[in-house]
Design a protein around this nucleic acid. Structure first.
Lengths: 241, 241
DNA sequence: CGGGTCGTTGACCGTGATCAAGTAACGTGG
DNA sequence: CCACGTTACTTGATCACGGTCAACGACCCG
């Protein structure tokens, strides 16, 4: 069975035999987590990185007034923890939002990649850089958009991301997050998320049914928040080899 | 004369001779820019990265209502552009805020680093990861703090950053940014920045005089926004060699 | 001296948070 | 299978924070 990480990376670059072997080593172990289970917490010793084999997860930070800020959402094929690799202790919490399987591997094995697979290391670097740009997009959304535009941005981001690895079914994409959690990603309350989602539906821009959401007029939505798809293609021409 | 980049990197790790040579190659060329000069613009072909030799710069994105979002501020010793390395065209604009000198080098030379200096490549990765966490901190600030707390966060961030390379003079740190620009970093207007800064001064938490700001009660300020210094120390134990 | 940028201060207003109540969906155990 | 408890979503009423608009003063440089 093909690894999700490999399939995400192959989307950007055809990997040679030795790179594949290097990656396989990282996916040796696997562990399963229940729904809403905490994988690691802020302040714990940061020893492992994780590859998502199945399930959705998110990293978050608790705020003062028992709300929280959701930092990133992870899906199958994502590498978790490289943005924290510079610190001895975790700077975020990681929790599953549904039942998930992860492959943990120790931090120092990342250094083997740098020593033995420079092209792979550079690809990881490029992906980290892609995610940095995505974070910048989200910052722009949070700091300058209306609540409605923020939601549109969120939906397009999720959609672009899912389209990278698989197509979206007829009844729309399935987002296993509560409205509270969506709000926590955008700096909104669950109340506003509910209101704006129904407003978007009334205006015919989306259709929703349970956890499934269908985007009805994508180009209008893209115009609303000047969305750019950062997932589809990255520049790999500069990579070694 | 010692390079600023080397002195920033040395703050984290003692570099061996070959690493120093690899870095020297990147700093071969240099070019000077006037105050408020545009270095590159969104959409231009992304061919160069830059090392800051002197001056302050910032990258930004224009918003709809002729405002803009300032993404990052760069100071001497910083590496500019690695967060965009994954894209063929620049995703942000870069402009100086005062007269500056930069060392540009072509993107593909970064790949030489990955091939020939794995430890250095991993250190760059760690710094990119540090900056990712800093971005997360700022996201938390923007999405959940009051305007006053945002400003406190901004001041502490600047202070921590400057302390990494040099000490802060008696009359306070000198921030060559207008209140408009500070607002653009935090998602606030110049009006609010002005109001809150004077309010902080009235409360005795800071003192300001022109572009100089002195933090009077650092521990109170840190408590106000739960600030964490991410610059001072990073984990380099996992690096190759 | 004059023009321009930047910072300050005041009055008003709009968006989204807050508080609250009610409904719907779901899982568990009797 | 229903009774119950819990969680998620919806909808309404009110409020506060920070944005907007505007006027004025300080300062700098030509």
């Amino acid at each position: 069975m093909k690894s999700c990480l490999v399939s995400q990376l192959s989307h950007y670059l055809t990997l040679d035999r030795t790179s594949l072997e290097g990656l396989a080593k990282l996916e040796r172990d696997e562990r399963s987590y229940k729904k809403r289970e905490r994988v690691f917490s802020i302040g714990e010793e940061n020893r492992f990185l994780y590859i998502v084999k199945s399930g959705w997860l998110y990293s978050y930070i608790d705020l003062a007034d028992n709300r929280r800020s959701i930092v990133s959402v992870f899906q199958p094929g994502d590498l978790i923890g490289y943005s924290e690799v510079a610190f001895e202790r975790y700077a975020t919490n990681l929790s599953t939002s549904e039942q998930s399987v992860l492959c943990p591997f120790p931090k120092h094995e990342l250094s083997d990649i740098f020593e033995q697979h420079p092209a792979l290391a550079a690809l990881f670097f490029a992906i980290a850089s892609r995610d940095q740009i995505i974070m910048i997009d989200r910052m722009r959304a949070i700091s300058s958009m209306s609540s409605r535009e923020k939601l549109v941005y969120f939906l397009l981001d999720m959609s672009a991301r899912m389209l990278m690895t698989h197509s979206i079914p007829e009844k729309g994409m399935m987002i296993p997050m509560s409205q509270q959690e969506i709000g926590d990603m955008l700096g909104l309350t669950n109340v506003t998320v509910s209101r704006e989602l129904t407003a978007l539906q009334v205006d015919g821009l989306i259709e929703k049914e349970g956890a499934h959401i269908r985007l009805m007029d994508i180009s209008a939505l893209i115009r609303m928040c000047e969305f750019k798809d950062r997932y589809n293609k990255i520049d790999t021409t500069w990579l070694p080899k």
